[in-house]
């Protein structure tokens, strides 16, 4: 059996490189009937903000060729509710539970992060500076080096555990943003969040989504994501977590070879709720078949 455990920074040990992507896996419990959550490297729960958010109006999704658009808009009950009501239910899962943190100013990112820092069994957070579906904040911070740096700087002061920053693909030069967050002390970067897109219902002559635009995910974005992971992995020294359209173990291996240390499974959970576990098992099997002793031997193998 190949070794598949990987570390992200000093504080996050994954038993295998497979995490589930925020917003596609609820709080993990939604899938507990269907898969053994203990077979995952980790779960990244829904985007959480300091204050509750209702999200955008329905319709929030549209199917697209080999993918989907969504404009959920960070609906969640806020950080305090997470800490008191949800954390107790998920803190003893036999896997890493990470919180995806979002906000509308560096201060409330930091405040939310500080609350997560108090939770013993949350070893890391993923800062979402890349949500395309909210007007105030979100992606606004993720599209400039200064904006990204300002959030990471504020959060770094308030949060001393493993800090992952999730990057937006809706930028000209993702590598420079990655370097900017690395310089401010991020322990890792994850990419990609969704690509901005739109789908028009030609009969109604209107966009299908309530806010017009949405974020594209699924296999349709995968080649873009692989390319960006490759670029970012070359540009920074911190670990890179790759995601975007991963449906199978082979897809995941592509990201590892592009330079990712771990991967996240998102939209695939909707098509096959067992996808994440199957991908984890499939990576193992592939490594064994190829006679690779340690998953680290394929990280960046395509460079």
């Amino acid at each position: 059996m190949a070794k598949v455990n990987v570390n992200i920074g000093d504080g996050l040990q994954l038993k295998n490189p497979v995490l589930t992507a925020s917003g596609t896996f609820g709080y993990g419990l939604e899938f507990a009937d269907l898969i053994d959550l203990g077979r995952l490297g980790g779960i990244i729960v829904k985007g959480t903000t300091l204050n509750p958010r209702e999200g955008n109006d329905y319709p929030r999704m549209a199917e697209t060729p080999m993918g989907m658009l969504n404009c959920v808009g960070l609906q969640n009950k806020g950080a305090a509710y997470f800490c008191s009501e949800i954390y107790p239910k998920i803190k003893d899962l036999d896997t890493n539970v990470l919180v995806n943190v979002s906000g509308s100013s560096p201060e409330d990112y930091a405040e939310c992060a500080a609350m997560m820092a108090q939770l013993d069994n949350i070893p890391a957070i993923e800062l979402n500076i890349s949500c395309p579906n909210v007007k105030d904040g979100g992606m606004a911070f993720g599209v400039t080096c200064e904006g990204a740096a300002s959030v990471v700087k504020a959060v770094r002061k308030a949060y001393n555990k493993t800090l992952i920053v999730k990057l937006s693909p809706n930028v000209t030069d993702i590598a420079s943003i990655a370097r900017a967050v690395e310089d401010e002390g991020a322990d890792a970067v994850s990419l990609i969040n969704t690509l901005m897109g739109m789908h028009i219902d030609i009969r109604r002559r209107r966009s299908v989504l309530s806010i017009g635009t949405g974020g594209l995910s699924g296999p349709a974005v995968r080649p873009v994501a692989v390319r960006m992971v490759w670029q970012v992995a070359h540009a920074v020294k911190i670990p890179v977590i790759g995601l975007g359209g991963i449906m199978t173990a082979e897809d995941a291996i592509e990201f590892l070879m592009a330079g990712a240390t771990a991967i996240e499974v998102g939209t695939a959970n909707f098509i096959d709720p067992c996808a994440s576990v199957k991908i984890a098992e499939g990576i193992n099997r592939w490594l064994d078949e190829q006679g690779v002793a340690d998953v680290h031997d394929i990280i960046g193998a395509a460079w």
Binding site: G23, T24, F25, E30, G55, Y58, R60, N70, V72, P273
Partner: peptide
Amino acid sequence: MACGLGACLCCVVKTIDNHN
């Protein structure tokens, strides 16, 4: 719907007290 499991929050409807 996308997930059917309560995980993605794509399928919402508004309640009388304005929650999704």
